[in-house]
Design a protein around this nucleic acid. Structure first.
Lengths: 198, 198, 198, 198
DNA sequence: GATGAATGAGGGTTCATTCAT
DNA sequence: TATGAATGAACCCTCATTCAT
């Protein structure tokens, strides 16, 4: 490869990342089966051959998007949890991460909330059975044990808390709850907490 | 009509209904674009020609399923509302209908919660902007005005209440919240109410 | 069959004729393969089952139309030839029949000129090899032998005469030669005759 | 590029041209609706995908064939007209082009004479209303004005001249007029001219 | 590696024909 | 005999994937 070509070529890492970004945007917007490889080519500005040099199949591309997206969200949650010990604070960390991510990177949140990943990964557990959500269930169990939350079925309490927060994110992404989430964050966290506190 | 004939012939109304049932089951399970007409043929036990004599296109079939499903749910909600006047009771009617329908006719509820109808009806408002959900928003507004609910953004309160209930239905359908919903109905309604009551 | 039914039923002969008429109209207009049986049903106002009780297949229907149409044209020609002996008069009989039929029963002439009968009767000789046209070739041969026509290839002379007349009919049916054919009949016959007379 | 590769690869221009050739042959032979895409695939020796990479639809393929064919014929006519001024010579140019093309590229002439292009281009004017034929009508008008042709309806005269020539081409293509057209060219041109000369 | 023209299985849909009524 | 709902082979077309360059 000569200098002339180096000037015209993109860093392969960036190129792969561009493919992933473009594909996730299209998958979220139109669904997996309604997104064609040529559409990804057009959105990402790379050749079809390049995509197939990074991923063996369209499904493998989708799988990588899935894993990366979940990992990114888990990372945000982990960072936000640092130093929090009270049940209220740990649950609020979840709410904050969900609401802030919804506004900062809507595609990520749309992916978590709406993507039908069973279209390309049959048999995979649903997203609400993954890291952040399991962690939150732990917090609820501890909260009940510690008397901060009302006694009862801990799974029901976890459902209630996450239901309030996630539905707000969902309706915001669907342009039904049009207020900035930052403006109603406190009210949402208060409502979610009221649903399950002792 | 004698018995011999009964065995070989199907009432056309039943046949069309069989197609609708089979198609909804498959649409909900695999999504619109991942459900092929041959798959519907196999599931419904009718010929492809018969389906196209009932519906001009696959999309028209999906549209009819959509309309029927929404109308059926709205009917259940209307019936359950009869005679209820207190805010708590009217909101509870919504919760009861959602939770009971989830167990009695899971496909109907899966359709309402998971179907991406924008795959075949681009531009249509999301389901959470249809009849039952708009009605529920009215009840919340009245509840705040009447002092039964905490003051605040009424849309946020509606989001909180429905979030608790719908997420329970969602996780039950995904086999994560495995308890019979009838068993946790009171707890869910209590949590949802606690989230927004005065 | 009781009186009540007689009032509601059509003479089967008429019904069959209606089918033939409707089918020929549609075949001429849209071609054989672009005419559907349901379209014939709609045009003829009979049931699909009735058509299949008259004709075993769509092709058999087309064949009968073909035979009837050719026979009808041959009949007109025969009648017009009665009593004509001079070469000019016999050729003029052909021209008159073509031009008058074009205006009186355009569908018949469209059929003769434009129908691609090889779409449903592969291997059949073209229409210009059938009765009236063979007859006309005989007249030309006689005309040359009798000195009324220029010596030369008799087939070429037949081609020339029929070419003038048939192209006029063709362009009239295509709405390019819009004058009433009756008004230019003499001129056409004169031109055709001039092309080949001694 | 070595010999081995040449055997396995086709110039894309040739490939597209092969498709056009094969399709025109089949369209002319069996008509548009009676020619299936698989048949074109077999005739052209390319994949169905390749065809659809050249033309968005079967109709677009037919349209391109139509345009190319008309343009090619018009070009021949233009070239042949060069330097001709007398009415007889200009009309003879038309006759020569028609008769020679009929023998040199029968498919082209069959297309012009027999193709029902309204099957795929509804509303398009018939071929006899296109370039060469309009030009010929001009020549006839000038010939009448200049006294070289008999007075009368100029359209009728144009019909007469073209009728003689085109019917000869038509019957030659249908294997009825089996003589080589080159051998009867002079006689045909003489007959056509005799039909309309002063 | 990167490219994109080419491949062909499989999609949605049509329509000639059948057969229970 | 007449009806028309039902059948399914075959249509046109799409798009994930390959491979010569």
């Amino acid at each position: 490869m000569n200098l002339h070509m180096q000037r015209r070529t993109v860093n392969p890492v960036d190129k792969k990342a561009r493919v992933v970004r473009a594909a996730r945007r299209l998958f979220v917007q139109h669904g997996f089966h309604n997104t064609t490889m040529p559409a990804i080519v057009a959105e990402a500005g790379v050749s079809i051959g390049a995509i197939y040099s990074y991923f063996p199949t369209k499904e493998a591309l989708a799988r990588q998007i899935h894993d990366e997206t979940l990992a990114e969200f888990m990372l945000f949650f982990d960072l936000r949890l640092a130093g929090r010990t009270a049940c209220f604070d740990k649950l609020a960390a979840f709410a904050e991460v969900v609401l802030e991510t919804t506004e900062r990177d809507p595609e990520l949140m749309e992916y978590l909330l709406f993507m039908r990943h069973d279209e390309f990964m049959p048999g995979l557990p649903p997203i609400c059975f993954t890291g952040p959500f399991l962690l939150l269930q732990d917090f609820v169990r501890e909260g009940i044990a510690g008397g901060e939350l009302r006694p009862g079925n801990w799974l029901v309490s976890a459902v209630a808390y996450t239901g309030v927060i996630l539905r707000a994110a969902e309706l915001h992404l669907k342009c039904i709850l049009t207020e900035p989430l930052a403006a109603i964050r406190e009210e949402l966290i208060a409502d979610a907490w009221a649903a399950i506190r002792a």
